[in-house]
Simulated scan of single mutants.
Amino acid sequence: MPPPGAPGWQVPAVGWLLDHCPSDYRMYAVWRRHPIALAWVTAHHLDAQLGAMRTAYRGLRVDLGEHVEPEGIAAALAALEAEGARLLAARRAAGLLLEAMQGHAFVPRL
């Protein structure tokens, strides 16, 4: 993705943001016309997904312990942990895109 401020940088940013929302969001022209609104709603959507992952992780053993063998529980917990890490990285990126669209400048650190 081009850095914020580069010509056309919001076009790939909108595509990336839409990739992290439900596919039905692509039907609404408002998100392409107002990328800052898309970045804002994407951040909220990712927050909700993170909450769901955390709830699932906490409740998996209790809710499914009698129905899934220990190896399956361990594998499911590992998958939830990996998905949580992916969502956390996506949420951080969406937040940075939102900040960039709000005009915040980022200074590289050495």
Score class of each variant (00 low, 15 high):
A39P: 06
R61W: 01
E71S: 15
D24M: 11
R32V: 03
I73A: 03
H44G: 13
A90T: 02
L18I: 05
G65L: 01
P108N: 02
I36T: 03
T42Y: 00
Q10Y: 04
A37I: 05
L50Q: 13
W31Q: 01
P4D: 12
P70M: 07
L64T: 12
V41P: 02
E83I: 08
H34W: 02
M53N: 13
A29P: 07
A82L: 08
M101W: 03
H45I: 02
M1I: 13
R54A: 06
W16Y: 07
R58E: 10
Y28F: 11
A93D: 06
D24N: 13
G72L: 05
L88P: 00
R109E: 00
L98R: 14
V107F: 15
P12S: 08
E83W: 06
Y25K: 08
A37R: 08
Q10S: 08
R86F: 09
A29I: 01
G8H: 15
L17W: 11
H34I: 01
E81C: 03
G84C: 05
A43G: 03
R61G: 10
H45G: 04
A37T: 04
Y28V: 08
H20F: 01
L18F: 06
A93M: 10
R58G: 04
G103I: 08
P7A: 11
Y57V: 01
H45T: 05
V30K: 15
D19H: 06
R58N: 12
L97S: 03
Y57S: 01
A74F: 12
W16S: 04
L96R: 10
Q49M: 13
A52R: 07
G84A: 06
W9N: 01
M53K: 14
P3K: 14
V41K: 14
D47I: 02
H34N: 07
A52P: 00
V107M: 11
G103M: 03
V41I: 15
R91Q: 05
A13C: 13
H67Q: 09
W40H: 14
M27I: 03
A48H: 03
E69H: 12
H44D: 12
P35G: 09
R86P: 11
L96D: 04
D19A: 14
A78G: 09
A76E: 09
G65Q: 00
P108H: 07
M27T: 07
R26F: 04
V11S: 09
A43H: 07
A37L: 13
V68G: 09
W40S: 15
A100Q: 05
L46C: 02
H34K: 07
D47C: 05
R58V: 08
P108G: 04
L46W: 02
C21V: 14
M1G: 15
H67E: 03
H34Y: 04
R32M: 04
A39I: 05
H20W: 07
F106K: 07
M1C: 14
H20S: 01
S23W: 09
S23N: 06
R61Y: 01
H67F: 14
A93P: 04
P70Q: 08
Q49L: 13
L17D: 04
H104E: 12
R26K: 08
R54Q: 03
A39M: 11
